[in-house]
């Protein structure tokens, strides 16, 4: 019984990091209709910047703040300098539909090589902001640690802040409106292009947090966030790609499920487990768990 509970708790901590990545993907998908595979690269770049600051100042939180700022800047930059130009050029012909996706792949490669050329390929680690020793329960200790509590708390604060922005502020209303019906939003006086860039920068910032948190009890390398991207994508698909709530639920379910596989079956099956979930969801409920049986939009 104790093992079940500790698996649940760790799964919650893992899943909450997936939630950030899948939220970042969903935010961009809703506004731009592109799954931003470069999100892994953007998060990686922000995490490296956060790592530099954190290891020089020896304050994790300062690193996190810089990672958030870097993520927001890079996200906005990607939309402003790449996506806008791209949508202006690739308007017709066989490549019009696929060009944005391919461009995000190119960006991922570009950021990866830049990071590799700057920081090299060695594994880096960030000093965790809290103890990674497990709590002691009764006689033994469980692998659930202060760090996990901190991760869950940080993610919860970010989720609450995002929910507040989206539900209670004019900016959130503008973001939702321009994602839902760009033309009508424009007619209502919303600058949709600028709103979209803001959406990208929020996604970038959220991705930066995900990168910092996942790195705080792991290593950082130019490839270390690829798996986070994949699991974030799977979580977003579980949630139906459209719904932010759905993606968070999907991420928690996925995180807990994969931790159960990890604890009860073995490390090597984690990826295959996640991949099977993706295939199953696509086969059974391709519109995700939040779909209400209405037709997909465009």
């Amino acid at each position: 019984m104790q093992k079940v509970i500790e698996t649940l708790l760790i799964g919650l901590s893992t899943g909450s990091i997936y939630a950030l990545m899948s939220l970042a993907l969903v935010l961009v998908w809703r506004s731009t209709r592109v799954v931003n595979f470069a999100q892994a690269g953007q998060a990686m770049l922000s995490t490296y910047i956060g790592f530099e600051i954190a290891s020089r100042s020896e304050i994790f939180w300062l690193g996190l703040v810089f990672a958030i700022a870097a993520g927001a800047l890079v996200g906005a930059g990607v939309d402003y300098f790449f996506m806008r130009v791209l949508f202006k050029h690739a308007t017709s012909g066989p490549a019009a539909v696929v060009a944005p996706v391919i461009a995000t792949l190119g960006l991922l490669g570009l950021i990866r090589s830049i990071v590799g050329l700057t920081w090299g390929g060695e594994f880096k680690s960030i000093e965790a902001p809290a103890s990674t020793d497990g709590f002691s329960v009764g006689d033994g200790t469980i692998p659930f640690s202060n760090l996990d509590v901190l991760i869950i708390a940080t993610v919860s604060i970010i989720l609450i802040a995002l929910a507040y922005i989206f539900q209670r502020t004019n900016l959130g209303l503008a973001l939702r409106a321009s994602a839902y019906a760009p033309e009508i939003a424009q007619l209502a006086g919303i600058r949709t292009a600028r709103t979209r860039t803001i959406g990208w920068s929020i996604a970038g910032a959220v991705g930066g947090v995900a990168g910092m948190l996942v790195t705080s009890n792991n290593f950082l390398s130019p490839y270390s966030l690829d798996l986070l991207l994949v699991f974030g994508f799977i979580a977003a698909v579980i949630g139906g790609l459209e719904s932010m709530v759905g993606s968070v639920i999907g991420a928690l379910v996925l995180g807990i499920g994969l931790t159960f596989i990890l604890n009860y079956v073995g490390t090597s099956l984690v990826f295959i487990g996640g991949f099977s979930v993706l295939i199953l969801v696509l086969l059974i409920k391709p519109d995700g768990i939040m779909a209400k049986g209405k037709a997909r939009r465009a």
């Binding site: 799954v35 595979f37 996706v101 792949l105 994949v230 994508f233 799977i234 698909v237 996640g274 991949f275 993706l278 295939i279 696509l282 391709p286």
Partner: peptide, 8 residues
């Protein structure tokens, strides 16, 4: 979905 699945 195909792009994401193959990337995964």
């Amino acid at each position: 979905y195909l792009a994401g699945t193959t990337l995964a």
